[in-house]
Amino acid sequence: MIPQETTVRAEMRAFIEDNFLYMHPDVELADDEDLLTRGLVDSLGFVELVEEVQGRYAVEVQDVEITEQNFGSIDAIVAYVERKRG
């Protein structure tokens, strides 16, 4: 079953909140906000994020796809997963 866009969005938000945002209790993260420049996710965090996307949605993330355009914000990740799942 292919998850709906809204499901991916909710799941990714939950993952980011559980794994990264609890360190920043005062931050209200918008879906289009840049995870890196806001200092919420660091380089290793993105490795975890990529692994989560690969595991949860069974998509093969190619090395050159690990970019800000595809993983920089919740919006970016949702769009990327949708695109990969076609």
Partner: peptide, 11 residues
């Protein structure tokens, strides 16, 4: 600025 996005490094 760092090593956040490996795809960027490869590029």
């Amino acid at each position: 600025p760092g090593f956040a996005f490996a795809g960027r490094t490869i590029a």
